[in-house]
Amino acid sequence: MFIVHINLLPFLLPYLSPTVAAAQAIETVAPQKNHPTAVVIKGGTYRPFYRPRLSESDKRIVVKSFELDAHPVTNQDYLEFVKKNTQFTRSQIGRVFAEDTYLKHWQTDHTLKNEKELKQPVTHVSWFAATAYCQWLGKDLPTTDQWEYALDDVGRSAKATKAAILKWYSVPNNQELGQIGQHKANGYGVHDLVGLVWEWTQDFNNSATSAELRSDGTKDENLFCASGSLNAVDSSDYVKFMRFSFRGSLQAAFTTANLGFRCAKELTP
């Protein structure tokens, strides 16, 4: 018994200290300046890709004016966040918030592998991490509608967008990730919505009702409430399918080498 007591004491001491090792807060330390410039996306009507009924395929929804980051969040930006919010360092983050590939491309918890990465979009970040970053800045992830609306660019840069998409989507990922801002912005002044990385949205998986995403529009009433089936309004827009399929394959704790994010902000009326 004596020996047992000796053994217990060192074990217990850390836990008798006031610092609780495991607590993780979503509310975080206030941010600094030097964050990506944001542009105002003027509101308008927009035809979402998935509708509950095909008879509504021309129905347009209203997207209110909002602010969107002009660039994806970079490693440099995210590094600042991690330094100020230690629970988001690679070695500390809860597995439930990010799988073990979180920030695997960084050298250590607080250093990058090389200078080039500073201006590359941050990748290997989960939805929880991306959300926390945006909320740290008083913003949020854009909704899928906001993101797609910004890409649509009221049809202004359709050609350039399509070319960039085709080029990026069809080439496998064996090349070094590009830096932000290397290509022209679209009509809103937003860069790199396509061509660099996929991007998280607030509601990334709510438009997919079927995991296999063959968009056969069949209802699965046992699995889903309300309409439960969504139909693609334009089944020849295969590039949009690719984006929605990708989003549908994700879970919130996932990270991938090709997935980053940017932030958005509601404009006060």
């Binding site: 990922n173 079927s210 296999e212 063959r214 990708f246 549908g248 394959s249 996932f254 990270t255 991938t256």
Partner: peptide
């Protein structure tokens, strides 16, 4: 379901 498709939608690295 889907000949397996329903159970196998997989993101890169997974």
């Amino acid at each position: 379901q889907g000949g397996g498709a329903g159970a196998s939608l997989t993101a890169p690295g997974h």
